[in-house]
Design a protein around this nucleic acid. Structure first.
Lengths: 152, 152
DNA sequence: CAAAATTAAATTGTGTACAATTCAATTTTT
DNA sequence: AAAAATTGAATTGTACACAATTTAATTTTG
């Protein structure tokens, strides 16, 4: 059986999507040794970033910010609670909502995490300008994708 | 207790890494409805892309190409085997290695997948040129990261 | 050549992701 | 106000990721 050559567009190395997938996992791997002393995974660190910025959000609000659903967040937040970094409490004005709040330990962790962004920037060997450009292109891409869900 | 403002670098929206993480998951989400009719997940599709390009690789070789280890690939490949798309067989010249080969059904699936890259490109609303530029920046970033593992 | 070291997959265990469902609380309708 | 619809978390189930360990096969060494 004659095997056709793979069309150009199906070549792995041509694909933006694989480049994105690989880069994302690479970067997460860079964080791992930096977050390990703090006892955090990368997604947990993202939750902490959001809470350091604005404390006392609901699971839903955290999910909107990070684009993650309760199936991902609920167990993650339980682990942060077990680690003593956040509290989880039903709101009395609406018992469906669960309020996520930093504990003192959670707030204190921000100091220990403060050096991480600079460390990452160093490893990535990009200028501030290059980082901003790339970041903004990716944000535009994400926004574009979420605007056209799947024409249903 | 006075709450300090979050330093600029710890702001979620400032972070390249989150933009990357969010974009990667968004793009995977775009693939989902396109791959569902083929019965593939996105990582499974990546494996198929590699095999369509070069059939008969070992688990290790697939892992090098996709930057995934056997802990991820072994169960994924077993699922592709259950789906009848690939075969897994120890090599006789070195019984440690497992040869992954497309079945006829696996090879045939390439036709059904051939429209996907164009469909994706459409959704992302990027010119060929923009896509190539972004892809190459991401590849450079990934390469850079993997060059400096963690100065150990 | 036999013991030691290395290698390739598989396995184990933890932690995401995400679709789909469930459950309880709140809103909206009638 | 009671029934129906909606909403927010949690739960269930499947599928990655990846560190660490195990197992078996092959190489390297003494």
């Amino acid at each position: 059986m004659k095997r056709e050559a793979t069309p150009q567009q199906l070549l792995l190395d041509q694909q933006l999507c694989f480049a994105l997938y690989a880069a994302s996992r690479s970067v997460t791997g860079l964080y791992r040794p930096l977050l390990e002393p703090l006892g955090l995974t990368y997604p947990q660190y993202l939750v902490m970033l959001v809470l350091w910025e604005q404390d006392g959000l609901t699971v839903r609000e955290l999910g909107q910010r990070l684009q993650l659903d309760s199936g991902t967040l609920t167990p993650l937040l339980k682990r942060l609670q077990s680690a003593g970094l956040v509290s989880r409490q039903r709101r009395q004005q609406d018992e469906r909502e669960v309020d996520i709040r930093l504990t003192d330990a959670g707030l204190a962790l921000r100091e220990k995490a403060s050096g991480i962004p600079e460390c990452l920037a160093q490893c990535m060997q990009l200028s501030i300008d290059q980082m901003q450009t790339l970041r903004d292109e990716l944000k535009r891409l994400t926004r574009q994708i979420q605007l056209s869900p799947s024409e249903d």
